[in-house]
Every structure is written in C-alpha cells, then in structure tokens.
Design a protein around this nucleic acid. Sequence first.
DNA 1: CTGTTAGCGCATTCAC
DNA 2: GTGAATGCGCTAACAG
Lengths: 355, 355
Amino acid sequence: MSKTAAKDRTQITMRDIARMAGVSESTVSRALAGSQLVAEHTRLRILELARSTKYAVNEHARNLALGQTRTIEVLFPIERGTLQRVSDPFFVDMVAELIDALSTHDYDVLLSTSPPWSEVRPGCAFLGGRADGVIFVGQGRHREEIAEFARDNRIVVTWGAGGRRDEGCVIGTDNVRGGYLAARHLIALGRRQIAFLGDCTLPEIEERYEGYCAALREAGMEPGDALRINAPFDIDGARTVTVGLDRFGRHFDAIFAASDMIAMAAMANLQAAGARIPDDVAVVGFDDVAMAAHMHPALTTVRQNIAEGAQLMTAKIMAMLQGEKPKGEMLPAKLIIRDSCGAPLSMRQESGDQT
Amino acid sequence: MSKTAAKDRTQITMRDIARMAGVSESTVSRALAGSQLVAEHTRLRILELARSTKYAVNEHARNLALGQTRTIEVLFPIERGTLQRVSDPFFVDMVAELIDALSTHDYDVLLSTSPPWSEVRPGCAFLGGRADGVIFVGQGRHREEIAEFARDNRIVVTWGAGGRRDEGCVIGTDNVRGGYLAARHLIALGRRQIAFLGDCTLPEIEERYEGYCAALREAGMEPGDALRINAPFDIDGARTVTVGLDRFGRHFDAIFAASDMIAMAAMANLQAAGARIPDDVAVVGFDDVAMAAHMHPALTTVRQNIAEGAQLMTAKIMAMLQGEKPKGEMLPAKLIIRDSCGAPLSMRQESGDQT
DNA sequence: CTGTTAGCGCATTCAC
DNA sequence: GTGAATGCGCTAACAG
C-alpha cells in the first residue's frame, strides 16, 4: 500500500494522448516540441488535447532520452545538524536572483544543503545526473573540498573568495577591496580604534579582514587581535557581538562589521549600552541588504551587487555547458555612505548612493 | 558543438562497472541497493569499484524505472519580472528548515518561483513528473489559483492563511490569534491609537489585521482606515512606511507591524524622526526573526515557529505520499515580550521568552 | 508530413 | 546468488 501509492498516480502519458489524437507518439512529441515537421491542424489538435487533459511530459523520461537535465544544483553552506542558521537576507536575494537568472535559460534549481563529499549513502550523494552543474553559494568552511570538487567536475561555479590557487571558477565581490574601502573611509573620518567584527575562518570574511588590515597599515597603524572580534554568522552571532563589546568596553571608536546583519546587531547593542552612533562609535557594514538603508542611523556599508553576481555565475555555468572553460571573476565592491559612519554630506555625493 | 557538449559527458554507467566487476547489471543494481540477494564479497567488490570510479546512479533512469522522484517542489511567492524582492530572513529560515526536514526523508528540493499556472510553454510548466509533490511557501496574491491547484493535484501543501474553504492542506501560524495577541497586549499597556502596518491584500496579513481588529473591538474601539498603513513586503516597503508615518504624524501611540522587517524599518524611521520607542510609540512585530532580539530596543513580536512549521508540512506531504488525506493545521502564535512595547518586567515572566 | 524502430540507464520480474 | 529479459516515458534517427 505504502509502496504503491506513489506509483499508482496513473500519470497520463504521451501514448495516451497519441491514441486520443489518433496519431503516433512521435507526432505528439514533435507537436509538443514545436517542431515544424508537423501539420498545423494536427499540432493544434494535440496541443488542445494536452491542455484539456492537463498532460505534462515526464521530465525524467525526457531528460533520460536527451541526456541532459536542464537543472542546476545550488548548494547552501549551511551546516546540517548544527543549529547554525544563516538567516541572512543576503541568501534569499542571492537564491532568488539565481533562480531568476537560471530560469531565463530554462534551467531549474535543485536546492541542497548537503555537499557531495558528505557521502552518507554509497552512491546516492550528488550529481547523479540530476543536475548539469553545481553552484556553491559561499564556501563556508569547505574551501578545500569545493576546490577539489571543482577540479574533478567540469561544471562547477562557486561564489566566494577569489581563487588565488586552482579553485575552478570562483565569482565573488572584491572582498579585499571592500574591506579596504570600509576601513580607509573610517580612518579618513578620523577614527583610530577600528574594531573588526567577523569570523575570519570563513574565506570571504578573511579577505575583508585583509583589506581592513591593508588600510590600517597604509595609515601607519598595526591591526591587532585586540580589535578583532569573532562574530559568527549563525544565530548566536549577535550575542557574541555583545560579549565582544562588553569585553572591550569603549576601547574603539569605530566598527567595521563583516556583514550588515552583524552590523545591525552591533548597532543595537551599542545603542542599548548608551553609545551614540556615529558620534561615539562609527559603524560600517558589508552587503547592503535592503534593510541597511532603513536602519537608524542608516547604515554605511559596502555593497555587493547580488543580481549581477547571480547573472555572472549563471553566464559562467552556461559557458561551461557549452564546453568552454571560463575563468573566475571579481565584482567591484562599492562603498555606500550613509549615516552610521558620521561622514559629512560632502563625501556622499562622490559615493553616488542611489538610495 | 553546443548541442553535443551536454551529452558528451560520457557518464560512467552501471553497465561499465558491471563489466569491470565481471557481473551483470542486475547484480550491480542489487549491490548498490543494498539487497540481501547478493554475496557479501561481490557486493563489497562492486561498492569499492563504484567508489573508485566515482560512479553515481543516474537518478533520471532510476526514477523513471521506479516511478517516483524523491523530490518535492518548493514554490516561492516571488513575482518574477517585477522588482519585488522579499529579502526576508523568514524565507531563508523556512527554506532551510524545509530542506532539512525533507532531506531527512531522503527527498530533494526543487526550488522555483514560477507557479504552474503561468504556462509560458505548452506542456513544460510544472509537475512534469519531476517532483512527487509541491509546497507553496506562502500564498502571495494567488490564493485562489493555489487552492484550485491543490484541488486538482493530490500532493500539495501550502503555507499560509488557514483554509476556511476547500483549499487543500494549508499549514500556517494562527495569524488571527497572533494579531489579536499583539493588539491586545498594546491595549493592555494603555495604548489607544494603534496603527497597523501591512499589506492586507496578502492572506496572511489580512488575518493578522483581522485579529488586530478583534482585539480593538473587544476593547470598545473601532478600527479605522486612518490607522491602517499599507506597507508591502517588497523592497519599497520600508519607504512606504516612512510615507505612512509622515502622513499620520504622531496620531498614533503604537504600531503593530505585520512582519519584523517592517517593524524594524518603522522603528528606524520613527527614531530618525525623533520619536522615542517605546515611550512615544510602542512597537510589536510578527515573525520573531533572529535579528528581532538584537534590535534596539529589542523587538516585541509574535513568534512563528518556523522549524515546527517546516516539519509539519513535511509530515503532511509524506502522509499524502502514503495515500492519506491529511487536513490543514494551525500552529499556535506566541507573543514574545521584549522592550519595544514598553511592557513592565512583570509581564515578561508570563510570556516565557527564552531569549 | 507521419509512423516505425531503437535506445537513454536502471529496477525488477522471472528463470537458472 | 546471479543473469536474461522486459519496461519506465520519451526523443531521435530512419524510412516511408
């Protein structure tokens, strides 16, 4: 009973409508595919029949015959089992844009959280021919595994920290530059004790930290661990920020947060502690999520162009499907100056914020 | 060239490893399926061979033969083409939990944003046998279409506003109750001019508004349009809030926002305008996203248990797959009292907030 | 223009 | 225990 249930759903097949139309399956197939090799009236008759019977071609059979899937697997960097939830608007946007971009090319999106190297079962892991390619949305703590996977499989694109080594096609924002811009901006505003909030064990974050360090050194300051607060993305991230802030008290006059969500949490914590933003502490975030412009004060941040990123990744993977071997690319980071950093109005015009 | 590229990827098949192992395909199939009808040593040999050659069964062929897909389609309520982006952490969480719950049952998730009724192409729309069932994450502006679709197709579960009529299996938070709790709470705190922020053309929001109205009437007040501010979820939502607030000035002393994101935006706008929260304006949100507890002031909100919702939807759809016909269910809404409403400490103990 | 044939990769009766 | 045969639903040559 339980076994048959799924199989029972006597799906109407191509043969059925072929019989109903009094033609062969081939003709139906052609008609549905919009082939020119079929008379207009029979085509219309078949189409009408298909609509009225709510027939839809079985994609499995189709893909099996065609040897393709028209599906891209999108892998999330969420640690399963752990309570780590990302819950960052950045990901919704990215996935939504990815779906948009891919469906423009008539590709479906198979979403997953368990990477191919976590082989729970023998041969049932990943690209079982269900997807033509894979997109990793972020590297998480698996940069090496992803790189290796990309070397083994042709059709792989990953979003994350730029490939210095042979990591396949990696697309991402210029995190180093972004971090640099953020820190330089704060320094230009006269801040000297700039705390960094973020988990540097994540490749993207590490790059942002790197840029931050570069800006500091350029200004003759030496970045120190005392101003580096480990703030993970997970659900406890904000709490960690609190702890961090408590720990360092007012030993800093600015914060560069590795993500907007972290920045928002930090701002709330600071304000709760009575600090004025940006007067006492200037804050700069990273991502420019939709909420950023609507915080109080409005968040100065480094914008990642998600739509462009999604489209670029899609283009890359389409190219790979065509047999090409595209290289990774870096999207420019852009500083969006708002209120949380305390910049004078004169500086904003240059940044060209269109909020 | 471009046509062949995809097909060229000479996937190693079952026949290949059958030959290599010197057995028949049947035996390989059985070995990989963990059947008892195969000698231990040959099984191990085959498994080893499969691993070393990185072989993975072709899911299309498998599904075609089995008549099932082990895939659930998850539909997003995002309007394609429009610039409407949800970008709400609520969705990441929901999708992540859904993936978790479904993969526990060995089901994959096919993500999509184009509903089955938007038949762009003839017969290539939706359940082309690629998925065993569908989950709608929210009804958006398509409650009727979804209801109809659920009537036609057996395996459909939707998250949203409870089914008063024959809408199939609808799971959702008790929005009416949630709205009622929020408004009642504000009234109990002495607020009298309670604005409602949200787009009532969305079923879930409409229900929250309904509960809000019930609480007002219970207290002898008549809800009026003057206090109802249309604040859509999309990217311009926060801006609309601003407009709304400007329009009404200080004619309200409290706000019930239909989502936490709206609440946060409203809070920021209020604070920017010099209003003190909760002194001048008390705020209550809806969802309890991770950020809510880390706002300043911490947001009082109505919690939706997303994990439970995802698990429940998964359970329902699994039941449907077994041939059962489960009914929709409503998850309890829970008021989480924090700081933005100005409630005295004594009220919090009762609410049992575990932040 | 249309029907016939063959095969995509795998699971599953059956025989052996 | 294992192999041979059959079919899942569809597409793509191949003949008419």
